[in-house]
Amino acid sequence: MKIDDDTGVGPGRGSPPRTPRWVKVFGIIAILLVLLFVVSLLAGGSHGPGRHTPSGDAGRHTPPSGVTDNGVQQP
């Protein structure tokens, strides 16, 4: 007879099986990452995809300071 220790059947039948340790570890890591993300937001930084792009307009690009494609220096 194969005992599946997930079911709680067997020794200690009255007590439900506990959450596996790896799930708890994963959950702790996930919570820490979320907290880190929240702290970074509260610290004033934006983590959205728009923080490196011109605000509100992903279609039109403001060229960085430098040369254009035909070699003309931007004023």
């Binding site: 490196h52 792009t53 992903a58 690009h61 060229p63 960085p64």
Partner: peptide, 27 residues
Amino acid sequence: LMQTQPISYMAGVAAETTLSSADLREA
């Protein structure tokens, strides 16, 4: 899916200009 916006933005900038090593470094 959130990253597709900055990816497309960088591609657009790269297509239109010549990027120096300092340009948009953070992105």
